[in-house]
């Protein structure tokens, strides 16, 4: 199959970018990234600079891919990362537009590569349980209801790719933040720090310059792990409780 690719090229964070168009010969069994590999091999053969895009595990779990394909972060297939997206879902002769995840909080490093360090900083602000190695009691000491563990797991499947931010018209990071707060606050082990956690993580999220959530739910619709916006509701709830009912204050 022959494809026309409109690819965003940008030299660095401080420079502007523009689209360039390429033609590539692919086959329907290729993954989307393998199709880009073919494009890059082609560019290298012509001694031109290949398109920079980030990728690693290519099995949908590392969360490294960061491109928007025809307007969809990770492409048009629901619940699928770019690396798991296959070319059989595209048509011969189709023009595909490929852009980086766009958000002020995810500055472009080069072409389709963006910097998502803001997510790390949100985790550092409280996305953990304060337990040192060796302090743990027996794993079975606290029984956890199966459904609760399963719900926490659903939130914990977040791969930290940033598609939620990329998809959100407001570039809000609420789905990411709420998934982590939910995962930890739901577990009995995480309950101890629940109040401080939600205050700190929301505060950090706000200071990173993400937009505010207005419940558009594009995040859930585009999330490759289909994480639910119920987590956002939960975090709102916990944030209100933390601010209004506890003695703690809404920032460090």
């Amino acid at each position: 199959m022959k494809l026309n690719l409109k690819v965003w090229r940008q030299k660095g964070a401080s420079t502007g970018g523009k689209f360039e168009t390429y033609t590539v010969e692919a086959n329907e069994h290729m993954s989307f990234l393998e199709m880009l590999d073919v494009l890059n091999e082609q560019l290298i053969a012509e001694q031109r600079e290949p398109v920079s895009f980030e990728h690693d595990c290519r099995e949908g779990i590392c969360g490294t891919c960061s491109m928007v394909i025809n307007g969809h972060p990770h492409g048009p297939m629901k619940g699928t990362t770019t690396c798991q997206l296959h070319m059989r879902h595209f048509n011969d002769g189709e023009t595909i537009t490929i852009e980086p995840f766009r958000s002020n909080s995810f500055p472009v490093i080069k072409d389709l590569v963006v910097d998502r360090a803001a997510f790390d900083r949100i985790i550092q602000s409280g996305g953990y349980i304060s337990v040192n190695t060796g302090q743990a009691q027996d794993g079975n000491a606290i029984p956890i209801e199966k459904d609760l563990a399963s719900e926490a797991f659903d939130a914990a499947t977040c791969i930290g790719c940033g598609a939620c931010v990329a998809a959100c018209p407001n570039a809000s990071a609420m789905l990411f933040t709420s998934a982590k707060v939910s995962h930890l606050n739901m577990m009995p082990q995480g309950e101890v720090e629940a109040t401080q956690r939600v205050l700190n993580m929301i505060n950090q999220m706000d200071s990173e310059g993400f937009g505010a959530c207005s419940n558009i739910t594009a995040c859930e619709a585009e999330c490759p792990k289909e994480i639910s916006v119920k987590n956002i509701a939960r975090v709102n709830r916990e944030y209100f409780a933390a601010v209004l009912a506890s003695e703690k204050n809404p920032s460090k």
């Binding site: 689209f19 570039a171 558009i216 585009e222």
Partner: peptide, 25 residues
């Protein structure tokens, strides 16, 4: 503020949502 959070705009925008009217949202 929300508009400012994304200065560089997408060239293609789509409207997929779950459980709410996409145009309205």
């Amino acid at each position: 503020q929300n508009r400012k959070a994304r200065k560089s705009k997408y060239s293609v925008t789509v409207t997929r949502t779950t459980g709410t009217n996409s145009f309205a949202a």
